[in-house]
Design a protein around this nucleic acid. Structure first.
Lengths: 258, 258
DNA sequence: GCTTGAACCTCTCGTCGCGTGAGGTCCTAG
DNA sequence: CTAGGACCTCACGCGACGAGAGGTTCAAGC
């Protein structure tokens, strides 16, 4: 027999689980963290759930199904019994997060489509080149955030094509000089190298607003990379490994600057 | 000084971290699980990373950025140096997952939009009614999977409107009789109740293909709920709490059937 | 050679929402 | 009275690290 009579004025944890489609473990977890406390216990220590608990459980599950955390749910269900303002705020927050997530996912989908195209193209006999593409993705992501990419794309438009072309030319010159120094083993704190680094960092300055938040050299490197993103994507004239070494060399040159 | 000379034939863990934009902790984690082993150690025990390690790290980060697990990455990078087939397979799998995820997210977004509309409508002075909607969402999700919802929507079209209307009428009658029993405290194993439950379970049978995979009563209950989904969404003539009790009562009636 | 502070090492616990036992108690039908 | 099913409380596990404790090593200045 169940409850006090056949109509059940209360539910045991197993009954509630079956009736609501969650597991017993889940209910115990909710009890533990306070999302759904079982009102009272039987003398034996067994949990007893009331009709009010059942309704609360349904609410919890609905909000979870909408992707909210148990902490958020606990809070909104704790706020003055049924506060529409708090609920609205939570829903809006969740909507923003989901929208953002949807955009991110969409970008990933497109990126993977691109990679699959590249893999399927007959013009790609060299698997190493595909790996190089993979490495480039990470390099670019390391040096720019999403917003930076977008803002820089705008600024680029404002400045006009000539300035960009000029910067590109300088960039290629710089990289080749620096690569020579790397190959020759020039110490990173060599004045000539330092000068090259300074020019590297300055090169893209007009392409970016001044944020003056320290870290300027790092930011400058990001800008530099950004400006030549297309070139990079279209495969660099230098192998990825060389560029990687160059990046490390640059990093070192900046930190050893007197 | 760093490495063996200024050009660095190898990187320390901190240098690699700065050059690649990951944390030191992450590199140690990759070492631990074997995604990126540091080739050798200095006599002091400090890790030494080579240019090959750096390239591998870029690949790992790129694949992670595409949402793959470290286990998957480990495997695809372990497969014969650069196997395009394995990579293609992984990319396709990932693409499927992301596509699925994007669909789910989109549905959630629409649901939240619906809820916000309901909250904003002036015709909703009663916050409790909103909570009832929340409870209904969970009830429906408990009893139907996505595919079930879709298949049943199709079958419903095939059978025609009259059959559906007749089922609805029966459904309402059944619910009211059962609610009376609940209120009167009739034991769940009472023959009359059992008969009502049998009719409940049978009512929607023609609306669904026979899957004959045991659990038929549960499946039948799902069907029943589905057929009246619209009514439910448009608010039931009975309070949610009553329906919840009724569900538990039904569950009990089925398990106590001789 | 000594000191100092930064960088490195290992080990361990915390995150989030539960799943999955282990080992013991309680309830109910026969 | 006994069996077995339902309940109880720990406590570890997952994935990809973050954070900190507590100890060793490195590189530079004296």
């Amino acid at each position: 027999m169940i409850g006090e009579d056949a109509t059940a004025r209360w539910w045991s944890i197993g009954e509630l689980a079956r009736a609501s489609g969650v597991t017993v473990r889940t209910l115990r977890h909710y009890d533990e963290i306070g999302v759904l406390r079982s009102g009272e216990r039987a003398t034996s220590g067994h949990r007893r759930y009331t009709a009010a608990d059942l309704r609360r459980l349904y609410r919890v599950r609905s909000l979870r199904a909408l992707g909210m955390s148990l902490d958020e749910i606990k809070e909104v269900l704790a706020s003055s019994p049924e506060d529409p303002a708090a609920m609205r705020a939570l829903l809006r927050t969740q909507l923003r997060q989901l929208t953002f997530q949807a955009e991110q996912t969409q970008q990933l989908i497109e990126q993977i489509h691109g990679l699959l195209r590249q893999l399927d193209e007959a013009s790609m006999p060299d698997p190493d080149q595909f790996m190089t593409t993979l490495e480039m993705i990470s390099m670019l992501e390391t040096y720019f955030t999403q917003e930076q990419r977008e803002e820089l794309a705008r600024r680029r438009g404002e400045l006009g094509a000539e300035a960009v072309e000029e910067a590109k030319t300088h960039f290629v010159e710089l990289v080749e000089q620096l690569l020579r120094h790397v190959q020759d083993g020039t110490p990173a704190d060599d004045p000539q190298v330092q000068e090259l680094v300074r020019r590297w960092d300055e090169l893209a300055t007009p392409f970016h607003a001044e944020d003056a938040r320290g870290e300027q050299t790092k930011a400058a490197a990001r800008r530099m990379w950004q400006e030549h993103r297309d070139q990079l994507s279209a495969r660099l004239p230098w192998p990825a490994e060389k560029m990687a070494e160059l990046l490390a060399y640059l990093e070192r040159a900046r930190t050893t600057a007197h």
